[in-house]
Design a protein around this nucleic acid. Structure first.
Length: 477
RNA sequence: GGCGCCUUGGCGGAGUGGUUACGCAGCGGCCUGCAAAGCCGUAGACACGGGUUCGAAUCCCGUAGGCGCCUCCA
């Protein structure tokens, strides 16, 4: 079975065929670094991280580009507003600080660094080149009102609306009072002339006067700069379909580029039934999430729903994810302990079951893929109960392989907390001593003492499990 | 007004024209000194009304409710 993806332009599941056999170019719209990352940003990044990992696992050489839009209206506004706070910040400092926050959040949940992460401000000449081609082709115009603005001429492009299947005349006219020079309310800015009061550092020389790029043009420039004028997959959040992606597509195609072959859009995250928004004050920030759950649990939670589904965040969701991850972790841990010292230790082969492969190939059906993991965990636990170590070793390898591909192997080194070193060793020594005392008490059938020790450890956040090979202790998750 | 999406058991969340997704929580059992973990078993669902069909939760139409985009947004 080959990979099928839902192409939101075609509005259908389609077989994925790369332009060049064995190679895939993916462009994903990264954040506009205007304020701190929230749960939606994490989900979006994770979705394409899973896509990228699955493509890589499937044997493709993946060039994965995710941009950072580090110049736009909001960044300038937020920086300007900071002038009235105790910590005033230049727009470029704000953008960079926020970009670092994003990087930290991505790293925290195991989103792999992209092949390249271009910043919009580093591709101004490429943007200008596209704008020049558009003007040349009659699809863009510089206004004559002295603003230095350049707009895309939507009326000149018959296919405008092809991505979201809307007719231009049906679109609600946007009351864009500031743009007097527009020929049509649907025309969008390619270049914004420098305005009085805006930072000099936010203006670049151009044939149409000093100014800065409009929103949308940066992605046309960066995607084609690094992936070519035609490339395989373009992804982003569902809320970017219109106008952002529609406009990207229009300007790139009008400029003569074939652009993306497949369009993917991930579902949004909602809170209490509604999309997060600043005005509602219901944003769940990445920092809050990272503080309230283990990173691997967060990754599991954000990835567990299908990427095109809306994901509803609610209280208790992370606890449920923690329980699910603990179950997987429990099997891996138990299997490795039980197999240690047998001839099956270390013999597990990292094999991915066909069912898992089929699920992932079917438009990245992660929920079904995870179901396969859980089923394998169950049969693996049963094999351990039956002391069928050959079978257990096989299933252990499968679970490891599947969780590795999704980046949710709880025992993987990347999730290991900062090891306490000496403190950890000291704790271990003390606990081992108590566990040993308890074993002695149990052997002499002094269960009062044994239970007291277990209770005391429990109150300290340490749980005890009695197994055929002795007691096992662990810190509560 | 236009373009779309959603409504599944206590919760989360898949899927699909005819067979238990999966996880969490619940109940019964096995195991255990008792637990924990694990295993086995079990209950419970497809918003509502029509239609197509041998058969629909799954396709079509309608109704109700909810959501997204059309304005900055992952």
């Amino acid at each position: 079975m080959t990979l099928r993806l839902y192409d939101s332009k075609a509005r259908a599941l389609t077989d994925f065929t790369p332009m060049v056999p064995g190679k895939v170019g993916v462009y994903v719209c990264g954040p506009t670094v205007q304020s701190s990352p929230h749960i939606g940003h994490l989900r979006s990044a994770l979705v394409y991280d899973l896509l990228r990992r699955w493509l890589s696992y499937s044997g493709y050489a993946v060039t994965f580009v995710r941009n950072v839009t580090d110049i736009d209206d909001k960044i300038l506004i937020n920086a300007a507003e900071s002038a009235f706070t105790p910590n005033p910040e230049e727009w470029w400092a704000l953008a960079y600080r926020v970009e670092l926050e994003f990087t930290a959040a991505y790293n925290a949940i195991g989103v792999m660094p992209p092949t390249y992460e271009p910043r919009a401000t580093a591709s101004i000449p490429e943007m200008q080149a596209i704008i020049a081609r558009l003007i040349e082709a009659g699809h863009a115009y510089a206004t004559d009102d002295g603003t230095g603005d350049v707009y895309f001429d939507t009326a000149s492009w018959a296919d405008y609306g092809e991505l979201t299947h809307q007719k231009a005349e049906d679109m609600a006219p946007a009351a864009d009072s500031e743009s007097r020079g527009k020929k049509d309310v649907r025309d969008f800015a390619l270049w914004k002339g420098h305005k009085e009061g805006e930072p000099e550092t936010a203006a670049w020389v151009s044939p149409w006067g000093r100014g800065r790029p409009g929103w949308h043009i940066e992605c046309s420039a960066m995607s084609t700069k690094y992936l070519g004028t035609q490339f395989d997959i373009h992804g982003g959040g569902l809320d970017l379909r219109f106008p952002h992606h529609e406009n990207e597509l229009a300007q790139s195609r009008a400029a003569g580029d074939a652009f993306a072959n497949y369009w993917m859009h991930n579902g949004l995250v909602s809170v209490t039934g509604q999309k997060m928004s600043k005005s509602l004050g219901n944003s769940i920030f990445a920092s809050e999430l990272i503080a309230s759950a283990r990173p691997v649990v967060l990754r599991y939670y954000l990835g567990a729903a299908h990427y095109r589904s809306n994901l509803e965040y609610h209280d208790g969701a992370l606890e449920e994810a923690e329980a699910a991850v603990s179950r997987i972790e429990g099997f891996l841990d138990r299997a490795e302990r039980r197999l240690a010292g047998t001839r099956f230790a270390g013999t597990s082969e990292l094999v991915i079951p066909q069912e898992f492969r089929d699920a992932m190939d079917d438009d990245l059906s992660v929920p079904q893929a995870i179901a396969v993991i859980h089923e394998t965990v169950r049969t693996g636990n049963a094999a351990l109960d039956d002391e069928d170590f050959a079978e257990a070793a096989t299933l252990l390898g499968q679970v490891l392989a599947m969780t590795e591909v999704l980046g949710i192997n709880p025992l993987a080194p990347e999730w290991a907390g900062a090891s306490g070193g000496e403190a950890e060793r000291a704790l271990g020594t003390l606990v081992e001593r108590l566990v040993s005392d308890r074993e002695t008490a149990r052997k002499s059938r002094d269960f009062t003492t044994a239970d007291r020790i277990r209770d005391e450890l429990g109150q300290a956040g340490i749980s005890i499990e009695d197994t055929p090979s002795g007691a096992h202790w662990s810190l509560d998750g």
